[in-house]
Simulated scan of single mutants.
Amino acid sequence: MVHFVGAGSGAVDLITVRGKNLLEQADVIIYAGSLVNPQLLDNAKKECEIHNSAYMTLEEVIEVMKDAWERNLDVVRLHTGEPSIYGAVREQMDMLDKLEIEYDSTPGVSACFGAASSLDIEYTLPDVSQSLIITRMAGRTAVPEKESIESFAAHRASMAIYLSTGMLEELSERLINGGYDRDTPAALVYKATWDDEKKFVGTISTLADIAKKNNITKTAIVLVGDAIAHNDYEKSRLYAADFETEFRKRI
């Protein structure tokens, strides 16, 4: 069996209990060495085979999985964050389907949620935003035209923008052109939940200056929206005294 496991956003104790158990039981681990916290490998048993996929092609990764399957060994494919977000897992699964190799998935804590915990923010504040848009700028991997930054900015909802730290000037310009005010709160979180995490809160117009001043060029997530400042929001109706639920009668 091949187990796709989310390593979490960085801190070693943010992997799920299921993910940690799978690491401890694995005969083979293939981990994303460029982003996964290597301390997680301390959970591996001594005889476990460990491969760093940062130096491997897709075909080489699949070959390791195929070899392990033929030897009846359990494989953990350890991805950063939550594998379903920019994890490039579907292409691996499709190749495993063709080889009739069984697999399953274990979720993880994505960077946008690790960053939210670091800043103690809630993306979905009543009367401010009830949506979180997760997206990225086009780089070496294209983004569909219908999913442009401008089209998402028009909603003025909370937004988490991955893989875009090296393009902050363009990002800010496009966010403003799409509909956000220049002074809309924005945050830049470098290596969220890692020991060397850095976090900064400013505005859309100051993002590029913040990054330049602090020498942040990669491995950071951009958060945008009025929810970051958590001002002028309505309290949740769920806990209001005059709001009746199945479990609580109206006072």
Rank of each mutant, 00 (worst) to 15 (best):
M1T: 05
G6R: 08
G10F: 09
V12G: 03
R18Y: 11
K20Q: 12
I29V: 06
I29E: 06
I29P: 07
I30F: 09
Y31V: 03
Y31K: 11
Y31S: 00
A32M: 06
A32C: 07
G33K: 12
G33L: 12
P38V: 02
P38I: 06
L40W: 11
L40C: 06
L41W: 15
L41E: 02
C48I: 00
E49D: 11
E49F: 13
I50V: 13
E63I: 04
V64Y: 04
V64N: 14
K66S: 10
K66E: 10
K66P: 02
W69I: 01
E70S: 05
E70G: 06
E70A: 06
R71H: 08
R71M: 05
D74E: 04
V76D: 01
L78E: 09
H79D: 05
H79F: 12
T80D: 03
I85C: 15
G87K: 12
R90H: 10
R90V: 12
Q92K: 11
M93N: 00
D94I: 07
M95H: 13
D97I: 10
D97T: 08
K98N: 12
K98H: 14
L99Q: 11
L99S: 11
L99A: 12
E100T: 13
I101F: 02
E102F: 09
D104K: 12
T106I: 14
F113D: 01
G114H: 06
A115M: 02
S117L: 02
Y123Q: 05
P126G: 07
D127A: 15
S129P: 04
S131T: 10
T135V: 05
R136C: 14
R136D: 14
M137L: 15
R140N: 14
R140Y: 02
A142T: 14
P144M: 08
K146S: 13
K146H: 08
E147P: 03
I149S: 11
E150I: 01
S151N: 11
F152H: 14
A160S: 11
A160R: 00
I161L: 05
Y162N: 12
Y162I: 10
M167Q: 15
M167A: 15
E169D: 10
E173H: 15
L175Y: 13
G178V: 01
Y180F: 08
R182P: 10
D183P: 14
P185R: 07
P185Y: 11
A186G: 08
A187L: 04
V189M: 00
Y190I: 04
W194S: 02
K198E: 13
K199N: 03
T203L: 01
I204E: 01
S205L: 07
D209V: 04
D209Q: 14
I210N: 13
A211T: 06
V222R: 00
L223M: 08
L223S: 05
G225Q: 06
D226A: 09
I228H: 15
H230M: 07
S236C: 08
S236L: 04
L238Q: 09
Y239T: 07
D242H: 03
F243G: 03
E244T: 10
E244Q: 12
E246N: 11
R248F: 09
R248A: 07
